[in-house]
Structure formats: C-alpha cells, structure tokens
Design a protein around this nucleic acid. Sequence first.
DNA 1: ATAAACTTTCAATAATTATTGAAAGTTCAG
DNA 2: CTGAACTTTCAATAATTATTGAAAGTTTAT
Lengths: 167, 167
Amino acid sequence: MEYQEAKEKFISTWGSLGSLWGINKAMAQIQALLFISTKPLSMEDIMEDLKISRGNTSMNLRQLMDWGIVSKTLVAGERKEFFTTEKDVQELARIIAKERSRREIKPVLKVLKEISSIKDDNTAKTKELIKQTKALHDLSENADTMVNKIVNQEQNWLTKSLLKFLK
Amino acid sequence: MEYQEAKEKFISTWGSLGSLWGINKAMAQIQALLFISTKPLSMEDIMEDLKISRGNTSMNLRQLMDWGIVSKTLVAGERKEFFTTEKDVQELARIIAKERSRREIKPVLKVLKEISSIKDDNTAKTKELIKQTKALHDLSENADTMVNKIVNQEQNWLTKSLLKFLK
DNA sequence: ATAAACTTTCAATAATTATTGAAAGTTCAG
DNA sequence: CTGAACTTTCAATAATTATTGAAAGTTTAT
C-alpha cells in the first residue's frame, strides 16, 4: 500500500467513524487530514484535498474550533489562515470526552434525575419508572465520571497499570 | 410532573440519545418503552403508544433482538408475540459495549493497523502517517479493552472502588 | 385444507441532515 | 479610503436515512 492510498483510507475510515464520536463526516475528515499533515493547512488546501466546497470547509472548521480540537495558526508572510489539529491522542481523547460529557451526557443526566424524582403514587408503573430511570441515571453518571477521570490522568501510569490489572 | 408526562419525557430523551450509542430514534424509543413497562408488550401496544407504523415497529424490534437487548416472550393464552427488554442496566451496558466493539471499533482497529504497517519510505509525511495512525490504534485498543473489562466485572466491587479511588 | 390472526418485506415517500456556491462580510496593504 | 484577498453566511439543493402501508408471507386453530 502506497502513501496516497493509505492516506485516503485513513481519512475515509476516520470520516465514517465520525458518528461514533458524534460529529459529521466532513468534520471528521478535515480533522483526519490535519492529524496526519506535517504542516498547517489553509482552507484552500483542505478544499482541494477533500474535494469539498468552501462553505462546507469553513463551517466545519469552525465547529472543530468550537470543540477545541483545531486551531488557527499564523504562517509567516501569509495573508490567509492556516489550521492545525491537536496532535497528541491522549489530549484529543481528553477534549472529546469532556465535550461529549458537557453537550450530551450532562443534559440527559439532568432529565433522568428529574424523572426519577416524580412523586411516587404507589402504582406499579410509577414505581417501575422511578426505579429504572434511577438505575440508568446512576449507571450513566458513574460511566461519565470514570471516563473523564481516566482520560484526565496526566501521567497515564494509572491507566497503564489498570489496563494490565484488568486484562 | 405526572406519570404520563414523565414517561413521555423519558422516551423522547432516550430516543434522541440513540445516536450516542449508535442506534436510531425509533429503536431507542421502543427499548425505552419496554424498559419502563411492567409487563411484556405486543407489537400493537408499541405501535399505539409510540404512534409508529407496523412495519417500522417490526423492523426495529428485529434490530433490537439482533443486538440481544430485546427478546420475545410467550404470554399464556395469547396468539401474538410479546416483547421484553433486558431490565438490568449493568447487563444492558455489557451488551451494548460488546456489540459496539464488535461492529464498529474492531473493524476500525483493523484498518488502523493496516495503515500503520505500510512501508516506511523515510519521507516526513509517511513517517507522520505511520506515527499518528499507530498512536490512534493503540489508544483506541486500550480504550476498547478497558471499557469491556470494566463493564464485564460480574460483581462491580472493582468498579465501585475504582470510582472511589479516581474521584 | 382453509381462513383468521398475525408478522415481515419492501418500494414509495417523507423527514432529516449535509453540501454547495454565490453574495455579503471582513481585513489589511497601499 | 479603496480594492484585492480572503472568510462567513445562508437559501437552495442534494444526499442520506427513516417511515409508511399494503401486499406477501407465516402460523395456528378448527
């Protein structure tokens, strides 16, 4: 497999995986392209490489910046803007976990808590609703906490030994 | 908040959350409905409650069964089929983690491994591609392993103490 | 074997989501 | 201040994904 083929395969695989971490295809592909690039890329570069429109590129770059995954870089002597992505996978994981927690998990936890706090009228169905939403709330909260803590370990000695221990 | 309102809120919240764990809205809503039901439900029951068509109900129930989350139950003296979902959240988490790993993560790991194994031609860009895909592969593999191991702890003493430790 | 009761399939359609591209907006060098 | 270089916005359109409903299929009771 040659470089170009490998590169395309990576971008398309990562792109289709976007849904797994909650972003769209173009967004994931732009990130993938930046992730394996050896230098900052301009909007022009990205449009050409991925064959997507200017508007699409602009909107998705903005979203990636909102996530905190991509940033603008100044390139000496150039008028236009250049972009780079976070290159450290550990840091990338940290950002993604934190953002997904904030955007998706926390709001759901809030709703689950509300629901599991409705007045118990002692009917079987109300009892079941309370019991099950509570269980879901607690599980989700624990999962969220664990993921964030693990991903936040500065040194990943804990992660490493945990992994060894759990194997 | 009354039962009916709470129930609807739960179903719609869980439904819109479907994307988070990789299934569609109707599928997630059916699962949610079964999850808080005190008894097995028929296709008719589900269609009526969620106001979705017969075909949609049938297809999504089948998918839920493929995932191993929903099963058919026989109700004495009834001709039609009834359905129930796994009620234990721990077990639910186990099934979901395992299925997502199998369907989505494992295939991506395979591709990442292939790509990170291309011949190193000593150009900077090839070196970067190899380095970054390798880093991504290793991180993803570790995350996948950890999630599965944690979720599989029969007794969750480990999870509990881990949580306490990490807090 | 028949027919009623039920489920599945799938082509058509609807709903949702992503993408384009041109116009409007911004920035900056001269 | 002007205009070239660049970016953003957004209505129109395309692509994708979900849903319907009726016909075909299956099962079961008699």
